[in-house]
Each structure stands twice: as C-alpha cells, then as structure tokens.
C-alpha cells in the first residue's frame, strides 16, 4: 500500500493540473479568440449597454410585447443566476392551477382570441430561461401585439418571420422564435 502512495499522489496532482487548469484555460483562450461573442455570453448591446443575451430569455407581461415561456425560477422569473424548472409532475394539482392561471392571464390580455393556446405558452421551461417560443405561440399573440402597438398585423408578422429559426440542418430541434430579439425589433419601430 505504501509503495502505491507516491505514484497515486503524483499521478493525481499531474493529471489534475493538466485537466483542471491547463485544459480549461486553453479552451478559454482559444474560444475567446475564435468565438469571442459566444464565449462571453452572446450579449445584445443597445447604445453600448448590454440589454440581454440572445440565448437567455427575459420576462414579458406588457401586452404590446410578445410573451415568452412561463418561468419557474425563484424568486423572480427568468432569474439567470439560479436556473430551474418547476419539476411539477403531470398529475400535480399545482401544475393544473398554474396552467389555469396562465391561460386566464393570456385570455384577459386578448379577450377576443378564442383559439386554443399552444402548450409552450402555458408550461414552464426546463431552465426557466428559455429564450424561444414556438411559431404557433407567436402567431397566437400576433393580434394582441399588433392592436396594442397600432401596427398592421402584416408588419408584425414580418418581424415574427424575421426572428424565426428553422430546424437546424433540417432535422434537429424545433422551429422557434427568439422572443427578446423579436421584442427588441418591435421596440425599434416607431410607435
């Protein structure tokens, strides 16, 4: 056993230094050089100030903005320093109550819209920071946003399309709309 101690300690220390310091620092250096924007968090700047990240969603409740996925982070929604899902099981009465509340809020903001609400608009995302919604969820909100902004629906629709990404390589993931990018584009239009 004693004869194993020196190699155990030395191999452990050497491999730790290589994999725990040299490797992550080398990746930091290379990623920072080749993909500087991504490595720093895909931040969006407006007038030189960071207003968010293209990859991290923000909470929206203004009827003139598109709303994103419900978020289960605490204490505030979309807390990007404490990601979390709701972890509610399919039979949990709290899930049913939460969904009822979300449906009520969406309907109250757009009483004339009787269409069934797409599931992603009333279910909390896994991270609580989901930057996207489905195109169906965006289209469901189109009338409300256009009305609240006094814009023609076609113009808003064009912005939705411009902020929609298809399946990557045609078969990976889902078609999705970036909510923050879309709302920034809306705000950039003159009201």
């Amino acid at each position: 056993m004693k004869s194993l101690l020196r190699p155990a300690l030395s191999v452990f220390v050497l491999l730790s230094a290589i994999t725990g310091l040299a490797y992550p620092l080398a990746v930091t250096g290379l990623a920072g050089a080749v993909f500087p924007e991504q490595a720093a968090g895909s931040l969006i700047f407006k007038d030189g100030k960071p207003v968010g990240s293209r990859l991290i969603g923000q909470p929206f409740s203004d009827p003139g903005h598109f709303w994103g996925r419900p978020s289960a982070t605490a204490p505030q929604p979309y807390n990007a320093a404490a990601s979390s899902g709701s972890n509610q099981g399919p039979l949990n009465p709290a899930l049913e109550d939460a969904v009822k509340g979300r449906i009520a809020a969406l309907r109250a903001a757009d009483p004339g819209n009787g269409a069934p609400i797409p599931a992603d608009l009333v279910t909390a995302s896994g991270s609580g920071l989901d930057p996207h919604i489905s195109p169906a969820a965006a289209l469901w909100q189109l009338g409300r946003v256009a009305r609240n902004r006094g814009l023609p629906e076609a113009q808003v629709r064009a912005l939705v399309d411009a902020n929609t990404e298809g399946r990557q390589w045609g078969f990976l993931g889902e078609t999705r709309v970036n909510v923050l990018a879309l709302n920034l584009a809306l705000d950039a239009l003159k009201r």
């Binding site: 797409p118 995302s125 896994g126 991270s127 989901d130 489905s134 078609t175």
Partner: peptide
C-alpha cells in the same frame, strides 16, 4: 410544423 406539441412542462422550446 408550427409547434413541437406534446408534454412541454420542463422542456425547452428549441428541443421540443
């Protein structure tokens, strides 16, 4: 084509 559908509680929109 416009949404993934299914049980979406706890899932991300990009993965569906």
């Amino acid at each position: 084509p416009l949404q993934s559908g299914g049980n979406l509680e706890g899932k991300e929109a990009r993965f569906g």
